[in-house]
Amino acid sequence: MVANGPVLRLLPKLTDDVAFFWTSGEDGVLRFLRCHSCGFFVHPPAPVCRQCLSRDLAPEAVSGRGRVESFTVNYQQWIPGSDPYIVAWVSIDEQPAVRLTTNLVDVEPEDVRIGMPVRVVFEHVEDVWFPLFTPAEAGT
């Protein structure tokens, strides 16, 4: 059995540029900054679209669906007391070039494959909702 993440989650500072992202899971929905001019999702958040340089950007909901691009099972006790946990890169279906470094939860390493579909779940710690991912059920 692997854990769903490290025993301690270091927390992001909820500055104005990123607060929407880290609190988005409060209503169970993942959001990214999107350019209203060209439709590009900009992540990490920036004041300008890196594709078209428009500054007309706003958070927009996405499906929360994605794919595992790579993963590793961490054993080293960087954070003492942690059981092994899975770190992954997950790309989002709406724009696969956007990836999140995240944890895969409620799944064992032997059942993880690169390319497998996953869906977002959130872990609530203080004022942050961390987007984590779990295998997407077939057909859903």
Binding site: G5, P6, L10, P44, W78, V87, T101
Partner: peptide, 11 residues
């Protein structure tokens, strides 16, 4: 660092 550290991707 905020994009990796919370997930135990600390190295």
């Amino acid at each position: 660092m905020q994009w990796t550290l919370p997930f135990g991707a600390v190295s």
